[in-house]
Design a protein around this nucleic acid. Structure first.
Lengths: 219, 219
DNA sequence: TTGTTGATTTCGCAA
DNA sequence: TTGCGAAGTCAACAA
C-alpha cells in the first residue's frame, strides 16, 4: 500500500464528469491497483476513486488511472509532501454477525418464538415472484408466511403482501396469514401492515441468540 | 490527518457486531474525528469505520471510537509500524457536476467573454482557504476573481467574498474585484452579491460551447 | 427533525 | 455472466 500526501487536482471522467480543485489530499494506492483520493473530512467515502481492476500510468506530474470501461481518473500533482510504501500482506477479512441472514436462521431454528406450537415448513419458500423468508404452520396447522427484516419499513410490508396474495391462491396452503418480523418496525410500516391484516413482531436479536441451544461463536 | 500503519485487531459493536482478526492495516484518523480501517485490497470501502461526529479515546494499546448512538469501534494495537500526521487544510470540495468543471475550462480558454480585453492570470488561483476558480485581469490590468457555479446560490457568493477578502490583502493584486458567474443565479444570491459589490454574470452553456473553436465531445 | 431518493452506489449470492 | 436485494448503506434534498 502506497500512501502519498500531495497537493493535487483531480478529474474523473466516466459515469459522470467531476473535478477536484487544487488542494492537499491523501492518495492511497492499494495492492489490487485501486486508487483512493481522500480529504481530511467527510467520513469513509473518498472524494474520488477508481475500483479494481484498473491500471495506473505514472508520470512525474500526472497519474492516469484507467479501468476496463475506459473510465479515467487523472491526478495532476503540483507538489508531493510525503510518499511512503508499506507491505500489509493479505487481510484475513471481516466476520459479521447480526445481519438479516442470521436473523432468518435463528428464527428458522426456533420458529416457536413466533408463536407457541409453530413449526417450520420451509425456509425461502418459493413463489413466482421470489421466495418468502419463512413458511410456517401455527398450532392449528394453518400456514403463516413470515418476512424478516433487520429494519422493517413500508416496502417490506408491500413485499410480504405480494407474497401472501400469491400463496393464498394455492388451495393446499390457503388460508395464509402473514407475520412481519424485524428488529425495528417503523410506524408507517406498522400502520400499513395492520391495514393489510398482517401481524407485526419486533425481534430482540440478543434474546434470540440466547435462546439458541448451542450458539455458534464466531470468535 | 493522521496515518497509522499497525498490526491490529478491530471489533465493531453497534448496528451489528463484527470482528477483524489480527493483521497489518492502515488506520486513518481524519480531522472531523472519523476513523477508517483499510486493508490493501477491496476498493474504496474501509473494512471498518466510524463516521463523524465521534470521539476517539486513545490508550497505549487500544483505541476506542464512540459516536452519539453508542456504536463503538475498538482497535487493539499490537504493533505500530508507522505513525504520521499531516495538515491538509480544508478541502474546496467536489464539483460533482461535469458541467461546472467544463464551464470553468471554457471560461479559462475564452475569458474575454467575461469582459472585452480580459485575460487569464491563472485557473484555480491558490489562496489559504482554497483556490479561486479563475483569476483574470481586465482591459485596464486590474485583477478580477471569478467564481463559477452551475446554479448560483447564496453560499457561492459567500465563498467568493471570502476569497476576495484574502486576495485583496495582497499588494501585488490589490484592488481585486469579483465576478459571480453561473448558468442561473438565484435572486437571494444576486442581492447578496450586489451588497458585497460583486458583479453577476449569467452564462449560456450552449453558447459558450459554440464559441469554443474545437469543442471536445465527451459523449 | 423526519422521510424520500439517488449513488461512479458497493457487495454478496444465486440462477 | 447477469440479475436481484441488502447495506453499519451514505448523503443530498424536501417537507
Amino acid at each position: 500500500m502506497r500512501l502519498v500526501i500531495a497537493r493535487c487536482s483531480v478529474d474523473y471522467t466516466g459515469r459522470l464528469s467531476a473535478h477536484l480543485p487544487l488542494a492537499t489530499r491523501l492518495l492511497v494506492c492499494k495492492a489490487d491497483g485501486s486508487v483512493l483520493v481522500h480529504s481530511d473530512a467527510g467520513g469513509y467515502k473518498p472524494l474520488m476513486w477508481m475500483s479494481p481492476p484498473c491500471t495506473v500510468r505514472e508520470e512525474p506530474e500526472r497519474w492516469t488511472v484507467t479501468n476496463k470501461a475506459n473510465e479515467q481518473l487523472a491526478i495532476t500533482i503540483e507538489r508531493i509532501v510525503s510518499d511512503t510504501n508499506h507491505d500489509l500482506g493479505i487481510d484475513p477479512g471481516l466476520q459479521k454477525d447480526g445481519v438479516e441472514a442470521h436473523l432468518q436462521q435463528l428464527l428458522a431454528d426456533r420458529c416457536d418464538v413466533l408463536g407457541p406450537g409453530w413449526t417450520l415448513v420451509r425456509r425461502e419458500y418459493p413463489t413466482d415472484i421470489g421466495p418468502v423468508d419463512l413458511l410456517c404452520r401455527d398450532a392449528d396447522g394453518s400456514h403463516v408466511a413470515v418476512e424478516i427484516k433487520r429494519r422493517g419499513e413500508i416496502d417490506g410490508v408491500e413485499q410480504l403482501a405480494r407474497y401472501l396474495e400469491r400463496l393464498d391462491r394455492d388451495p393446499l396452503l390457503r388460508p395464509v396469514r402473514g407475520v412481519f418480523a424485524a428488529q425495528e418496525i417503523k410506524p408507517q410500516a406498522r400502520v400499513l401492515a395492520t391495514q393489510r391484516g398482517i401481524a407485526c413482531l419486533v425481534l430482540d436479536y440478543d434474546e434470540l441468540r440466547g435462546l439458541e441451544p448451542d450458539t455458534p461463536r464466531l470468535w
